[in-house]
């Protein structure tokens, strides 16, 4: 309580001196993550946040090319444990992790002479848990924020449903509850087929997205999608800043790409094509 008030005063004071203390106020405007923006932004390709924990994921598109059914499996397991509703139409659709075409996931690659079949390979898309997330910058209530381990999380209790984060996300990773996710369709079938009693659902009027299975990480498990494809080499998960982690090893062995790296969001998702 006391801390909240102090925070408030700090921010109110900051707002008041915005005119005089322009540089510091500007810094706070740009602040999207815990990391202060003290250092000058690095040149295009360089990565941010080299200290502390930064969880990330590698998606091996080659493995999905060999076993295309894996992609669907990831979506199923994720959506069922997180009580993600299925409205059966694209307008109301809510998705945390889904398969899309290569041409859409990597929409800015204009190269059309590619290895045959790549256009048909299911490529997984999900929240990139950016190091400099534009959604966190946009949220007017801090309902979405960056955790110290790099996960971009949401507090559904605080979300006012303005959908500014959805406009800000360059990856289309966010979904809005246009209607009651706990409701039923015309035939009386619930939108959430079977409820997972260990995880909450959401309510109407809030935004939701992939949480990198933060609830599973807390009890020492890996994200459900990574677990679902275990043993196939299709996905890897771990701390990007730990040079000895499996994911760091993979990233040093394979050439990987990120989605829309030119936007300066520093995604924590990497794809082996």
């Amino acid at each position: 309580m006391k801390k909240d008030r102090r925070d408030f005063l700090k921010i109110a004071g900051l707002a008041a001196v915005a005119g005089i203390g322009a540089p510091s106020a500007f810094g706070s405007l740009l602040r999207g993550s815990d990391e202060a923006l003290a250092a000058a932004p690095a040149a295009g390709g360089e990565e941010a946040a080299k200290s502390g924990k930064r969880l990330g994921m590698v998606i091996n598109v080659r493995a999905f090319a060999a076993q295309p059914e894996l992609a669907e499996k990831c979506t199923e397991v994720c959506h069922s444990i997180h009580n993600v509703p299925d409205f059966g139409n694209p307008k109301d659709e809510i998705k945390w992790i889904w398969k899309d075409k290569y041409n859409n996931v990597f929409a800015d690659s204009s190269h059309y002479k590619r290895p045959g079949g790549l256009a048909e390979v299911p490529v997984l898309a999900l929240c990139n848990h950016c190091d400099k997330p534009p959604c966190v910058r946009a949220c007017p209530t801090k309902a979405t924020f960056k955790k110290s381990d790099g996960v971009v999380a949401m507090d559904y209790h605080r979300c006012i449903g303005c959908r500014f984060c959805m406009a800000a996300c360059p990856y289309g990773a966010r979904s809005f509850n246009w209607r009651d996710p706990r409701g039923k369709d015309e035939n009386g079938n619930p939108f959430i087929k079977t409820l997972n009693p260990k995880f909450p659902a959401r309510m109407r009027g809030v935004v939701e997205k992939c949480n990198f299975c933060t609830e599973r990480l807390a009890v020492g498990q890996i994200p459900a999608c990574v677990e679902a494809v275990a043993g196939t080499g299709a996905m890897f998960f771990g701390d990007l800043n730990d040079p000895n982690s499996e994911i760091s090893q993979i990233l040093s062995l394979y050439y990987t790409v990120q989605r829309k790296p030119s936007l300066g969001t520093y995604p924590s998702l990497f794809y082996i094509i």
């Binding site: 408030f8 921010i11 109110a12 900051l14 707002a15 915005a18 106020a25 706070s28 405007l29 740009l30 602040r31 999207g32 966190v136 910058r137 946009a138 949220c139 007017p140 209530t141 801090k142 309902a143 605080r158 979300c159 006012i160 449903g161 303005c162 959908r163 500014f164 809005f176 509850n177 109407r204 009027g205 809030v206 935004v207």
Partner: peptide, 17 residues
């Protein structure tokens, strides 16, 4: 989406937004 929470904007002031 949640109009009754509109005052959260003032309750949790966020200058970066």
């Amino acid at each position: 989406g949640q109009p009754i929470r509109a005052l959260n904007v003032m309750l949790y002031p966020t200058p970066n937004s």
